[in-house]
Design a protein around this nucleic acid. Structure first.
Lengths: 196, 196
DNA sequence: AAATATCTACCTATCACAAGATAGGTGCAA
DNA sequence: TTGCACCTATCTTGTGATAGGTAGATATTT
């Protein structure tokens, strides 16, 4: 690959297409879960044919595992490290609540992990595992946050992390079911931290 | 219909079959949501043909609406009235937590309303409405419970009801996703009431 | 440098199957 | 003889997946 090619080569890049496919799949899963999209849907959105989607991801399970792994990686990349000295646990938790709201609740959808959890019965072992892995990452990080925030030992902090995760996820279910966005703040408010 | 017929008539009763169909559908929805069962599945379980299921419930939406309405009715019938004098709010709430656990969480599934909420994008208007109706009934009852339990005005009690519902639903998501049943008690414990 | 081979990212066409739904028929009880 | 609860048979649509082909970029050989 010469420098020229970077500008002139019109040959489709595999990673570009793969990312487009994952983007479409992720959006579709958030909208309606595992069974709410087909290879044909994805293909149309990306601008290729369904057989070409199979070229990049042989099976649906392969595709969803890839989506979950990317999701987990991005999640980890964005998070602040709770073990550095100047970590601000209060602000971080508030931002987390806001992020969950803007990324999921306000878009009239639930998180990709809640959606896949609901479809767990029809997930392959590999997909289930990638889902469980994500929860471990999420709970692990929140455990550290609560250790800092509430000066708790790891065990107790992990319980708090679980309570927190459950509350946010449950809130998004409540919003989705009733159609009342206001529920989110009402449910999440006990977890909000005073700014000072 | 004579008294004799009660014992001798082997002609299938419409309501019996309808109940069997609803039982099968409800169990299937709890297992995997709206798209996880077909008329053929239901038919096989009941012991008739799929066309006969359509005879009782012309469309899938009709069937699921019927299931949700029956579910809501049964829910209301079981609940103690929080407005009578000897209503024991503490015990009632503990029983509610236990009931949610034994009916959903321990069976490695989530509640029918959580499952349908996740599938909301593909529900017809009628089904969505029956789902929203159930949540209103549930929240309405819990609001009264919290008014008694915590001596709150209606507004504040309703917020508490929402927080409670969200927590239990979220806990069941967490259990389902991680496969760790222990999360349920850990998440629900702050809501448990001291027995005296 | 030219010729050849291989690889890549797509394509068309098709498979087997399962879905919701409908038309029209059968047997039996009231 | 009417109505009910069921049946067989079939339609259409959509699914995940596969086989096999093609044009063009890249790599290898001559």
């Amino acid at each position: 690959m010469t420098a020229k090619n970077i500008f002139l080569n019109k040959r489709p890049s595999s990673t570009d297409t793969k990312n487009k496919i994952m983007n479409a799949a992720e959006a579709a899963i958030v909208r309606g879960g595992y069974s709410a999209f087909s290879f044909r849907d994805i293909a149309e959105e990306v601008g290729i044919k369904s057989a070409s989607v199979h070229y990049h991801y042989p099976t649906k399970a392969d595709l969803v595992v890839a989506v979950m792994m990317r999701f987990t990686d991005e999640f980890q990349a964005i998070l602040a490290d709770p073990e550095v000295d100047d970590f601000d646990a209060r602000t971080t938790l508030n931002h987390f609540i806001d992020g969950f709201r803007s990324k999921n609740v306000e878009r009239h959808s639930m998180s990709i992990c809640t959606m896949l959890t609901a479809d767990k019965h029809l997930l392959s072992e590999a997909v289930s595992q990638s889902l469980a892995d994500f929860y471990q990452v999420k709970l692990g990080w929140l455990t550290k946050v609560f250790m800092r925030l509430e000066n708790l030992p790891e065990d107790a902090a992990r319980d708090r992390a679980g309570q927190f995760v459950a509350t946010l996820h449950g809130a998004s279910v409540l919003v989705q079911a009733t159609g009342e966005l206001a529920w989110y703040e009402k449910v999440a408010s006990p977890w909000r931290q005073p700014s000072e």
